[in-house]
Design a protein around this nucleic acid. Sequence first.
DNA 1: GATAAATAACTAACCAGTCAGTTATTAAGT
DNA 2: ACTTAATAACTGACTGGTTAGTTATTTATC
Lengths: 217, 217
Amino acid sequence: MSDAVIKKAPVRRRKEARPQELTAAALSLFVEKGFAATRLDEVAARAGVSKGTLYLYFDSKEALFLAVIREGIVPVIEEGRKLLEAHADDPERMLREYLFGWWALFGSTELGGVPKLMTSEAQNFPEVAQYYVREVIQPGKALMREVLDRGVAKGVFRQTNSELVTHILMAPLLHLALWRHSFAVCCQVPDMDPAAYLESFFDLVLKGLAVTPEGGK
Amino acid sequence: MSDAVIKKAPVRRRKEARPQELTAAALSLFVEKGFAATRLDEVAARAGVSKGTLYLYFDSKEALFLAVIREGIVPVIEEGRKLLEAHADDPERMLREYLFGWWALFGSTELGGVPKLMTSEAQNFPEVAQYYVREVIQPGKALMREVLDRGVAKGVFRQTNSELVTHILMAPLLHLALWRHSFAVCCQVPDMDPAAYLESFFDLVLKGLAVTPEGGK
DNA sequence: GATAAATAACTAACCAGTCAGTTATTAAGT
DNA sequence: ACTTAATAACTGACTGGTTAGTTATTTATC
């Protein structure tokens, strides 16, 4: 009789892995349904535990939210910085790496849903929003600004208001991520190849930033 | 004695005006707190009525949501179209009018919060999302595409993948609106003048779309 | 006083957070 | 090895507060 063996329902104990399993489950559900519409029972179920277990690791739903942001994103920023440093001498290449690296490391992954999540919930959770601005948005923008400044210094890009242009250049990236996690899901979008999108964007920006022929610099 | 007149205040009957008052109240609350986190009691209170009254005009919370989108946005699209037709012969001017008109008619108003709202809730309310895509996003994009195509036809803009570029050009506009209704609220943003932002954006795009000096076309 | 508009009290369902109890794992005693 | 004790991980039923949606009643208007 194999019953005796088969009947063993697993219920594994793995204290170490739980928080990550829970934040991963929470991330995907928060992104999919929004924070308020996500039930903690569902988060727990997706992580393969009960809701009670969730509360062994996180004090509250909001604490879980913060952990999702913290664990998910902050490490990626550092990765991005390293990626760019590899091309510090070539601003055009740096810009290109920024766009495609952003997509590869962030936008195309599960984390690509975080901008949507944070945008939706910023007002409801000011502390999380401030953390996100400080640890993600500002470093990300600073990195972009460095690309621009370096291009100007090298005479490859024309002078612009780099604060504003940084903001502007982030927008199509974020838009791509937001789109994928909102309208793209429920409304069939025939052709929206991220690579082609980024290529068009890169092309547009490169020409938009080129030093003007007349006037020189 | 004016008391007799003044005292009359409490319950006004105005069947005609109610739906608009309610959708206006709902819009501001949905934008501020998100759909799920908004209480119908609060919507009713802000419109100066009770929750029961709300149900005289809308079948459900979702029906109210749809009405908010329908009544709020659709009229604005038509206004925008008319605005652009006034400059049909000058693509550069048309592009400029698009950007600043979008801001004046839409982004800077209460409606500017709708992109945030729709992005957050698209997955939870696919029917509303489809309506929004069909009635707002597609017409808005079509209008932008017309600007681009006209520019190409006139030899003012270079040839591009207009489907992708349209998407890309909408992004900084939407980003401006999203930003204002999310992070800008809880984290002090020192300088983010919409006019300067749009000016920088216009400048960037105009140069990005200019026919290339060599090659001419 | 008849009808339409609006209300406020109500219900049913839902869900974040709790906790008494269960099961797996480890340690100690024999 | 083999039982027993102690601990750590986990569970799921429960609670208390909340809210979408309903309805019996009140209030205004003609």
